[in-house]
Amino acid sequence: MIANRVSLELMNSLSELSTLGSSLEQFGEALGLSSKTLFEISLSIEELFSNIISYGYTDDAVHWIKVAISHEDDMLIIRLEDDGIPFDPLKAEEPDCECPIEQRKIGNLGIHLTKKFMDDMVYERQGNRNILTVKKKITGT
């Protein structure tokens, strides 16, 4: 039987990306996702997770980030929950992808890619927690 939900609690450290990556891979393979779809989801999760780590915390303490991956009908759903400072990635400024190289900046490129690859993103602030739910339509299940 295919598990339809994986829940992880990860430290705010980039080294957790490999745990996250392999959990997603197992989940995706069980669902029969194409390698392209799996790549787009992995990239999006990495961008969102590394954003929380880079910008979410103002202290050096260990924080826990909850990640849940599930699917419902033809939607793959990823929910990230953290206790970092309020941050709504949907309000992040769009990068200028046309300007010449000298003025080109990398900021927000991760969010830009995530918005392109995912079909739906919803941000909520509940108490002291950021909750981001992203969805991607999947086929072949």
Binding site: L43, I101, R104, I106, L109, L113
Partner: peptide
């Protein structure tokens, strides 16, 4: 097999330097 914006950042920085 995989690249994210972190990899793009390195390439952008390197090409600016080389230019």
């Amino acid at each position: 097999d995989y690249i994210s914006s972190a990899g793009l950042r390195v390439l952008l920085k390197a090409t600016k330097e080389l230019k």
